[in-house]
Design a protein around this nucleic acid. Structure first.
Lengths: 347, 347
DNA sequence: TACCAAGTTGGCAGCGCTGCCAAATACGGC
DNA sequence: GCCGTATTTGGCAGCGCTGCCAACTTGGTA
């Protein structure tokens, strides 16, 4: 999209110093320190016993030689890495950066590192990513949702690597599951709109094949409508990334089709903000002429001139809890976290 | 922030199948196939020569035993991993997820994996992250900006690992540099506002210690003001994450101080959207009473009811070019990419 | 028929580190 | 001064794979 406005990159070459040679090894450190390799290794990992003086000596040499332990070798020898495989559908939905922050909060203090893969909501790609991550023998996997290919599931099971599935509790998990019911999140939204008296409700969201969680919210919402003898009056299903742009255009098309809607449920706040912008731009009074409801609790929605009614989800917490449980060696379990409907001024 | 609205997580324990045992090794595959290890290894890496029949036989056994090569061992033996260390300041500024997408576009097709670290704009943390990533002997590093601790610089140099520094060309790079002049981006913004006739300009941005690139834009902007015998009339420097909320509050404070401003330059679109929202909410006419200018070219700004004037930056491209150059073994170089001022309706 | 090049295959020594075990040393208590 | 226990240390065999080299097949060729 931006490609066209980039000039041809201008290059200016410079000389570059030679590629570095062999790096310092444990053996070299041990020789320089006049100690055995095992002793040096113990000091470096701060594991096992050694005298204060030995420690001193090792540290001094490590510093002087600029020794950097090789974890490839370490992990191979001890059969256990400190890498955690994280597989998410996208980085363009703020949910996932938030999730990663939570995960980092749990991982960093204990020295684990994240290997991140992005699936673009493609389960086959998820399978491929997990397979190649498996080659690094990560300490754990954090993945999103409960929908996976059979092969993904069996690879994970066969590997014996602990796995946390995040963000969704509507279904069967593999090992640890942390999240909340997406159906219920949809249902709560529906109840809110109904309680406010809206009856002609439209829907804007990604097409159903894409995001299973979105589809579950849709179903949860619709189930409540149905209990009340209603259904969505009309809907716009969108392919591609969630964006303000797409949401704005979708609402415009929806309204152009002429149904008399009094509210629209957007599957997330990016779309909803686009919808809200459309209303502001075309002079549609919100919520008196049209109510708007989103999902996620984005910062931008909450501090908009007219705060968006939405469902605030504990993204970072889900990530943090998931990471923590897995590293703590918790037994398989399902952790249900809360979410919260936040009433703004758009409903 | 969200903690208080989380209930105590509800746990429900379940039995879990035993942790997986030893995984299948190359040797086991070779024995099962009645071939030598080297041969099997060649087939699996598709490297070297072997007959079609051998290939068949190996594949069949691999499939049957569910063999997953151990890259720890592979990388150790061949001294070269396919991991790329990526170190970014934050995930909450859309710039960086965009960057990661670009990087992934270059890395995925060639089977490299990203190990990602987040510094929170802390150079000491950057140093620590790079040091621990070094232990995995990554194939390359992608880092942000030209400001690093001396130790970071010397570790990178000593390691001999190729490094691309992204997003900024105002300064001396270590190896490969891809980006554009942040000073110039600031200067262009200033020229735009001056050309539009604004003279009393305020600034809202992160405090200067935090984000060097932001500070460079500020300086570039100010240099142009100065050439015209002007300076910022007033400014609000913010600690913490860029957010709509912070931008909105900052503009409110700025205006409350009573200077007669006719424009405000925001160091990014998140802040700028907050500013715009404040104006809309308090009935300040934009741009006739107050002009607003941002930076980044966020989707949400471009599709706001009143599109934001901003500077569109080629985030994904910077990442993609950086990753590609590094993997292609390009010599040290500086690649200057374009950015573009996009005039919306807020100036 | 002998001989060579090209195509295949197997053997084996590491890559750098950790885990285990044995050896060396230190420290008390009688 | 001797012995048992606790603390420190070193040696060495792998972890699973790749790189190198030698060995073996082929199928032509002189």
């Amino acid at each position: 999209m931006l490609k066209e406005l980039l000039g041809k990159p201008r290059m200016s070459e410079t000389a570059r110093s030679s590629k570095g040679g062999k790096s310092v090894t444990l053996r070299e450190v041990s020789e320089a320190a006049g100690l055995g390799m095992s002793t040096v290794s113990r000091v470096i990992r701060n594991h096992g016993s050694f005298s204060a003086e030995t420690r001193m000596r090792v540290m001094e040499v490590v510093e002087r030689l600029g020794y950097v332990p090789n974890r490839l070798a370490g992990a191979l020898a001890s059969s256990g890495s400190n890498l955690v495989g994280i597989v998410i559908p996208s980085l363009h939905n703020i949910v996932f950066p938030d999730l990663l922050s939570g995960v980092a909060a749990a991982l960093d203090p204990v020295g684990y590192q994240s290997v991140i893969g992005v699936t673009d909501y493609d389960l086959a790609r998820e399978e491929a990513l997990i397979q190649s991550m498996l080659a690094w023998r990560p300490a754990a996997f954090l993945i999103v949702g409960l929908e996976h290919t059979d092969r993904t599931r069996s690879m994970l099971a066969a590997s014996g690597i602990r796995t946390a599935e995040l963000f969704d509790t509507d279904g069967e998990g593999i090992d640890i599951v942390v999240g909340f019911s997406q159906r219920e999140a949809g249902a709560v939204s529906a109840r809110h709109l109904l309680a406010k008296g809206y009856r002609s409700i439209g829907y804007v969201g990604p097409d159903f094949g894409t995001d299973p969680r979105s589809a579950k919210r849709y179903n949860g919402f619709r189930a409540v409508l149905s209990e009340n003898g209603l259904d969505f009056v009309d809907q716009e299903l969108l392919a591609g990334t969630s964006s303000t742009e797409a949401g704005r255009a979708a609402l415009e098309r929806l309204l152009a089709r002429g149904w008399k809607l009094d509210a629209v449920y957007f599957s997330n706040d990016d779309f909803a903000m686009g919808g809200l912008f459309h209303c502001i731009a075309s002079g549609i009074e919100v919520p008196s002429q049209l109510a708007i409801m989103g999902y996620n609790g984005l910062d931008i929605g909450r501090f908009a001139p007219q705060p968006l009614t939405t469902v605030l989800t504990p993204r970072a917490e889900v990530g943090e809890i998931g990471a923590r449980l897995i590293l703590d060696g918790s037994p398989s379990t399902v952790v249900e976290t809360a979410f919260k409907l936040v009433e703004g001024a758009t409903t």
